[in-house]
Write a protein that binds this DNA or RNA. Structure first.
Lengths: 340, 340
DNA sequence: CTGTTAGCGCGTTCAT
DNA sequence: ATGAACGCGCTAACAG
């Protein structure tokens, strides 16, 4: 007695429909023009009766097309990444691809593991959501020969399609908003800059805009997400030096904004009344925190969708030089950037 | 000239090591006892030289073991689900499985689509993270014959392993906390109860505990996540009837807590000073919202990890009657449950 | 229009 | 200890 009914194969269907495997295969692949109505009918019934579903394994083995796409995410707990994932997934469904999601948890050996894995499963393309990814982790990607697209971040010296935010424009808009609201000292706060282009571009646009408008004091500081003490001292120092003017902090991403908000809490400073606060990336709780936190919202879903479309274009043989799609951000104004 | 170097196959390796495929296969599967040191050496070098990696497709086809596990998530934007996902993923890595993540977005036809897909890829087991899943969507799962485990929620009349929170205990602890802090009227607020066992169990434990302690007023109401107006009226009404006493709201899950917080904002009510607030599920921003929101934190990561272990046990042929693992929650006390 | 045949890359008897 | 040959489920080339 069998443990469980073995799955029906294409041969079973062929037998049940008293025909050959080829015709069944043709039916499955939509080559309806080459099948008589009667045969189609029989095949259809056989498939239904046996609850047959073709094995993607065998199909991929034969054709070399697995219709599989790998997604590498540095940190799946990051809301930005999750939103992007939604967009990617929607695009996959629309195009008939399946997504293999790999969360590297920002660990290099996990990334190595997953790259091998994706290769083992013969994925046809890879999307890398590099948000929050450390630089060393990115280096590993360079060896892959598959169609690949980067989200949010570029890799120095590595020619690869990129989809992300128009950082220069966004940072400029954000800075101008703060200037327009009368802030006279602004601190640009980010995780360690390194060679991370998003941070560098945002910083540069901030500086340029500040200079263009002759901002009295444009400062810059870096702190890692887990350096609470350092964050405290940076913020305390900045506030003490500028509390007589209107001063504000501009935070380069959502994860850090959360930490900054916690730090300000610890220091007893209220965003809005005491100090301005503006963060990149929308936060679902932004309106609930005190007077609300002004954010620069990214079109995350669209970014994910566009990224997947781009990989597919490459899979389909597109040899265009190099695509770099930059989406505009949207400023969501809340209480944290209203002085007094 | 070939477009890109075709991947090396097991035959290539065999040729390069001047041996047969069989030995290479044995080497790959760790049957080291049956290989001479010299041959192992040659194979090892050939694999390295060709950058060979076995095709999981072919392997799965032959052995019938794909080492693939499917995960069905109702709503990937739910932080609870993401945390659980982390745990599942860690367990997968530890056990040598790969995860196929499917986000149904709470749409029935997407679920149908993904169930077929998982079956096509011959996954060996399925984990269903039912958090936020509508009842009608769950019904579809019943037909799958694969090893399957449910997270968080049970399906009526469907024998299946379940991993989740000890709802009765958790709700009891939460209720007693409110009682101890002097609240005399408590409103239990959830999404529509339906037949969702988590909601029912939490409600029942709330009622039982309230009765045992002779709480003056224990009320209950339901509202869907998108019914802002209804939420407003429920809360306004409750507050007006009880504002002379200390009154509190207990919310059955994190997504709804977010909506409740927004509603209270709209109504101009402050949690803590004006009305008590306690929510199931930890929120990363809980401490930043006003005086902070008291939450009942679930061991999400562990729940995910345990769920995957359970599926694997079934895959390995475990025929135990039925496992129901219930983890304890942890009350995280913040300002929202301190009256006056 | 339809069936027959030959692999895709791998694991697995079964001989050597 | 090692290799030759067969077949997993499917598609593609080639007959009929």
């Amino acid at each position: 007695m069998k443990r469980k009914a073995a799955r029906a194969t294409i041969s079973d269907v062929a037998k049940a429909a008293s025909t050959g495997k080829t015709s069944v295969s043709r039916y499955l692949n939509g080559e309806h023009h080459a099948l008589s109505a009667a045969l189609k009918q029989r095949i259809e019934e056989a498939i239904a009766a046996l609850d047959y579903r073709p094995s993607q394994m065998a199909r991929g083995l034969k054709r070399g097309r697995t219709r599989l796409i790998g997604l590498i995410i540095a940190d799946i707990t990051n809301p930005y990444s999750v939103d992007v994932l939604s967009g990617i997934e929607a695009a996959c469904r629309a195009q008939g691809f399946t997504l293999l999601v790999c969360n590297t948890n920002n660990e290099v050996d996990q990334e190595r593991h997953y790259l091998q894995l994706l290769s083992s499963y013969q994925v046809e393309g890879i999307v890398v959501n590099a948000v929050g990814m450390r630089e060393e982790a990115l280096s590993m990607l360079q060896q892959s020969l598959l169609p690949m697209v980067l989200i949010d971040r570029k890799i120095p010296d590595f020619a690869c399609d990129v989809v992300g935010l128009n950082n220069a424009e966004a940072a400029s808009v954000a800075t101008e908003h703060l200037l327009a609201n009368g802030y006279q000292a602004i601190l640009f706060l980010s995780e360690p800059l390194g060679l991370v282009n998003t941070r560098l571009e945002r910083l540069q646009a901030f500086k340029a805009t500040a200079q263009r408008h002759q901002l009295a004091s444009a400062e810059q500081a870096e702190a890692a997400l887990n350096e609470a003490a350092k964050l405290d001292s940076i913020l305390r120092d900045f506030y003490q030096r500028h509390q007589q003017h209107n001063c504000a902090v501009m935070v380069a991403n959502g994860s850090l904004t959360l930490q900054v908000a916690r730090a300000l809490r610890r220091l007893g400073l209220r965003w809005g009344p005491d100090i301005g606060l503006l963060g990149f990336d929308e936060l679902e709780w932004a309106e609930l925190a005190g007077v609300g936190i002004t954010t620069l919202k990214q079109p995350t879903w669209q970014i994910g969708y566009a990224a997947l479309q781009q990989v597919i274009r490459r899979i389909d043989g597109d040899e265009q030089p190099l695509a770099e799609q930059m989406f505009p951000g949207e400023l969501v104004i809340r209480g944290s950037t209203s002085p007094q």
